[in-house]
Nucleic acid binder design. Structure first.
Lengths: 209, 209
DNA sequence: GACTGAATTCAACAAGCGTTGAGATCTGCC
DNA sequence: GGCAGATCTCAACGCTTGTTGAATTCAGTC
């Protein structure tokens, strides 16, 4: 049997002390961050409660204490969209209909290359395991983003145009972040904008017959 | 305790008879078919050996008997591409460079709307769980399909063009078959060809700067 | 400075997983 | 028609999973 060795500053070597931690350590936030990363890397099934807790440096039981269940943690860490769709919508439509393609691609890439990418990847990687992930992805892309965009552009057949746009955006996300297709995965933003923006522009305001 | 009731024709009610089955029932093939469907619907982790065997109407131990392991079954059912890339390549490039977009979209859709779709969906849904699935998807799309197409088209920056094409094809597959984005998911092939073919055409032979 | 309650670890649970070995039954061959 | 081997079911194994309850320690309050 191992004996806890308590050092002078209150920390332990080898075995962690029980009971409440000294103030200032936000276990809840650490779990959310760790969960986001684990879900992004391994998907819902592959990320275990134990691996998430280990990454957060915390006991697995903390997941149930703070979030009730693994599902609860998933809902908080991944299912909650971390930004306001309306703000993004205004940003994208600000320069008029003829710059929609450019702005959309640039906005998505900037967000995904940053912290927002983990949430998107986690969503995509968990689509199979959790129905809510699928619904969230669908709702967000079509209803919150591209429906508003097609309305702002005032184009005909808005639903078809919206789903065409969504298909290219999803494909770009899959290729760049999930599958890692080179050279797209390492390309700088401007290269991708030059390639993909005209596609979205045509899907929105061009001829699709 | 339940007692096996053997009927006149040798079949049993309630409890299945032990031992070798009468000839003619191809358990191996049934398992491959069932596995393809289960992997497509639930991904690698979600599809259990027991659920696959149940769908095939067979004992779970048959998976190990015929394929060694769950991985072995996955390799046979999903990882083995069910058609010859060279044939598809010839088919797609037959009408000259200016019809590449049309032919590519039509070919992929025709294949995926049929039996080939299950394999693709299973691949995509298992990308997270199995590295081989990711590698197979990447290799197939880029190295086998679009690398040959860009070479046939003789275009500049073939790798970038290939990955752009792959991104739109993957996105279309995700939207139509995995996420089920309407109206794209239910649209007829010609509608999608009209929308997406010009995109691929431009990615291959157009201006992407 | 004692006391209440919140935070944390630990040990253990039941359920589900892939896998295995033993036994039962059929087929093909001589 | 008997025998070897292939096919198949059954029961069980060991492992991992999400979850829980008890025990322990700290923070805040009067």
């Amino acid at each position: 049997m191992m004996v806890p060795v308590t050092t002078a500053n209150g920390k332990t070597t080898g075995v962690r002390r029980r009971g409440r931690r000294p103030a200032g350590e936000d276990t809840r936030a650490a779990l959310v961050t760790a969960a986001r990363t684990e879900f992004a890397e391994h998907g819902y099934d592959g990320a275990t409660v134990r691996s998430i807790a280990a990454r957060a440096g915390v006991d697995p039981a903390m997941v149930n204490h703070w979030f009730g269940s693994k599902d609860g943690l998933f809902a908080q860490a991944v299912l909650r969209v971390p930004f306001d769709p309306q703000v993004v919508l205004d940003q994208v439509t600000a320069d008029g209909p003829e710059h929609l393609g450019d702005n959309i691609v640039r906005t998505f890439l900037a967000n995904w290359d940053g912290a927002g990418g983990e949430v998107f990847i986690a969503l995509v990687r968990s689509v199979t395991a959790r129905d809510e992930a699928l619904r969230a992805l669908k709702d967000f892309l079509v209803h919150r983003m591209f429906k508003g965009i097609t309305e702002a552009a005032g184009c005909d057949r808005p639903e078809l145009r919206a789903s065409l746009c969504a298909s290219q955006i999803i494909g770009m996300g899959m290729a760049r972040y999930v599958i890692g297709l080179e050279p797209l995965a390492s390309a700088d933003i401007e290269t991708i904008v030059a390639g993909v923006a005209p596609t979205l522009q045509r899907y929105l305001t061009g001829d699709i017959d």
